[in-house]
Simulated assay, not measured.
Amino acid sequence: MDRVQRGRLEHALKAGHAYPVHPDGLRLAGVDPIDQNSHWEYRCRDAKTLLEILDVQCSVHQLPANGELRTFYYRGHRDASWPLLPSVFRSANGRDGSNNNFDAHYHGGDQTYEINQYCNFLEAVNSQGMFIEEEAFELLRHHRQGSHDTESWVFRDLNSKIVPTTFPSSGQLRTLALAQHYGIPTRLLDWTKNPYVALFMATEAIDSVEEMKREINFGIWMIPKVLFDVTSAFKYFFVIDVSKFQNANISAQHGCFSLHIPPLEDVLADRHTFPVSRSNSSFMHLDEYLCDSNGDALHEEFLNRITGKPMLLTLKSNEVGLIRQKLDQLQMNWTTLMPNLDGAAKEALRRQRMDRIIG
């Protein structure tokens, strides 16, 4: 951050242009938050409580943010214990993040795996005659050639695998987001601006009576937009919006993507650092990264007075019945979220599962 931008942020605090939030968390729909250090957890009593918190009339949505109503980014997890960890770290060892190790990623081949999968996706997209950003196509060209011709563009990891230091560049982010959306493991995380999309994603696969009886909590993450904005001002963080014409599914799902892991080039040039935990050499979960000021007093003041923490709403899976009634009322299903034949097929299979449960 340059001095001018820092000065503007300091002035905003002193002049009261930045609106404060309750620093100790808010009681919502009769539920007191549990401080989990990097986020507030709200253990909802029932489906009605969860729906009340997500509703725009709930007090948390009425908090002002730069003169406007506070808005959030949402993400649904079928299991509330799953961390906010990009899929490339979950590719080898499941959803629990046990593969989340910095040395393994940069010296054990994970980054090579991420780029190879991305380039395979680009190759397939290109073969269909679809648009690819210029910088993404340049990466694909180097990948085809083995990258031996441009040593300034790459480095060799401990296994002598060649990896581009510039990945991901700003001109590769939208196609990287498309790859993430279609299931390619990347360093991005999916988000939606619609809470009911997140609710559908968290609950649509809870499809057996036995699973409901186990009473595993599902979770809905709510992160204030102002927290994303402040993080991007102080350190490496991007929200990536894919143009609506590029993908109807992402548009229907009000989707966007976050990125908090910088390219190696920025780290080597001391422009940014990798978000690595000081205690165990693993990549920070996104909620940890968002709440880490890295010793910057101004950043800490914004976190304490302005942004608030991420919020995680949790609910037992056996409460999913009322949730589904609400989603049906809103016509929230695969047909509307994937307006194509793939969506129609997924919805047909989902309804078959639901009929089996009801029957």
Rank of each mutant, 00 (worst) to 15 (best):
M201Q: 14
Q325W: 02
A198H: 05
L313R: 01
A177N: 11
S127C: 01
R144C: 00
G343C: 07
S91G: 00
W40A: 01
S281D: 13
H22V: 10
T314D: 07
S127A: 15
R351Q: 15
D55K: 05
S127H: 08
T231K: 14
D96H: 07
M1V: 09
L84M: 15
C256H: 05
D241T: 10
P64G: 08
M222G: 03
V21F: 11
F237S: 03
I115A: 03
A252F: 07
T150Q: 04
T71V: 11
H272A: 15
D270R: 12
L341H: 06
N340C: 08
L50C: 05
F102P: 02
L158W: 11
H17N: 14
S251F: 13
T335E: 15
L290T: 00
L50N: 03
V226K: 12
H254D: 09
K161W: 12
P185V: 08
M212S: 10
Q128I: 00
H107W: 13
T175K: 03
E215R: 15
L259F: 03
L122C: 03
P20D: 10
R187M: 06
R6G: 02
E300Q: 15
E319P: 01
M332A: 09
T203E: 09
I306N: 03
H285Y: 07
A198K: 07
S38R: 02
Y74L: 08
H17A: 12
D110Q: 15
D342Y: 04
L290M: 06
T49S: 07
H105W: 13
C58Y: 01
E52V: 00
P263I: 09
D292C: 06
R78V: 09
L286K: 02
G183K: 08
F167L: 08
H148M: 02
V4R: 12
T175C: 14
A248K: 14
V197E: 01
Q325L: 11
